[in-house]
């Protein structure tokens, strides 16, 4: 049966000879082959250089700044008045502004994000998840400038209806909106952690007659705890570094206070203020922005390292 379509009939082609002839092109490609790892290595080096660039620029200019303003005065000063005749550079007002806005954001984002995650992971049907998840993704994809606009033109006026004495620029409104912005991130990271809890663990508890809520409280959340904590920490990191919402909606008063109805400046908003103010390169105020950026960088880096450490522990559990 084979004889009919046996290759005998076809034209004899000497592929080997042809390949031998093409050797010259192979020489070129072999050279390329040796160069490419080095090209890719130097491309990869860009990320390392970026890190180095960030650290070096922040460090050198910060050191400059500390030569003018003693580091201790800066870190413990409660007054920040760089434009005064006798300027004062205390960073605590900025830190309090940053911490307060982040706390407000987390008060909004942590419970709502976590409850959303519980609903999606434990209660919602496939259909509901299929609709809700993309909506949350859209929410996460909205640029922060849009949230800033929303805080300034909608949330602040709305809050002022209920809270008499709320200033037009205040830290409460941007804090809340920042929280809304972070909800999708916490929801999706926590949901990932909860979904990766093996079903066997749930079934064991359900078989004993537990309700879903009890299973969630006693089995799922404990098992996914480090993942959930990591999502919170990343949320905090995100809030600390958020710029546009607070810049637009919280004004630029360098208040060292805990009154959320007032205007407060965050570290990020201070950097924006200094750079948009066209500070002369070399002036003290110009150097101060690096010192502030350095603190911000260290804060967020710390959060990210913690989050990674916590979630790595979580992976080891199963």
């Amino acid at each position: 049966m084979k004889k009919n379509n046996h290759p005998t009939k076809t034209n004899p082609l000497n592929v080997k000879e042809l390949i031998e002839k093409g050797k010259k092109t192979r020489k070129v490609s072999q050279k390329l082959e040796k160069i490419i790892p080095f090209i890719l290595l130097s491309i990869t080096a860009v990320s390392v250089l970026t890190t180095l660039g960030i650290i070096l620029t922040l460090l050198t200019e910060t050191i400059h700044f500390f030569n003018i303003i003693p580091i201790w005065d800066f870190l413990t000063g409660t007054v920040l008045k760089p434009l005064n005749k006798v300027p004062e550079y205390g960073v605590l007002p900025l830190i309090s502004g940053t911490v307060i806005s982040s706390v407000i954001a987390m008060i909004v984002a942590a419970p709502i994000g976590l409850m959303t995650a519980i609903y999606l992971s434990e209660y919602a049907s496939e259909k509901v998840s299929l609709v809700v998840k993309p909506i949350l993704e859209v929410l996460a994809g909205i640029p922060s400038i849009v949230y800033g606009f929303f805080a300034f033109t909608f949330v602040t006026p709305l809050l002022r209806e209920f809270i008499p004495g709320l200033e037009a620029a205040n830290i409460l409104s941007p804090g809340i909106v920042m929280g809304i912005m972070i909800i999708p991130m916490i929801a999706s990271l926590s949901e990932d952690a909860m979904s990766s809890v093996p079903d066997i663990m749930r079934e064991g508890a359900l078989a004993l007659g537990s309700t879903k809520l009890e299973v969630t409280k006693r089995v799922v959340i404990p098992a996914a705890l480090s993942g959930i904590i990591a999502s919170f920490v990343l949320g905090i990191s995100r809030a600390l570094g958020e710029t546009m919402i607070v810049t637009i909606a919280s004004g630029s008063t360098k208040n060292f206070s805990f009154d959320v109805t007032q205007s407060m400046q965050t570290m990020t908003a201070y950097i924006v203020e200094v750079t948009s103010g066209d500070a002369a390169s070399g002036s003290t105020i110009y150097y101060s922005l690096y010192a502030v950026a350095m603190i911000l960088f260290i804060f967020t880096l710390l959060m990210n390292v913690i989050a990674r450490y916590v979630s790595r522990k979580f992976r080891e559990e199963y």
């Binding site: 592929v15 042809l18 390949i19 093409g22 050797k23 192979r26």
Partner: peptide
């Protein structure tokens, strides 16, 4: 099928 011959220069 042409992949091999191609990368070897045909």
């Amino acid at each position: 099928v042409a992949y091999g011959p191609r990368i070897h220069g045909i």
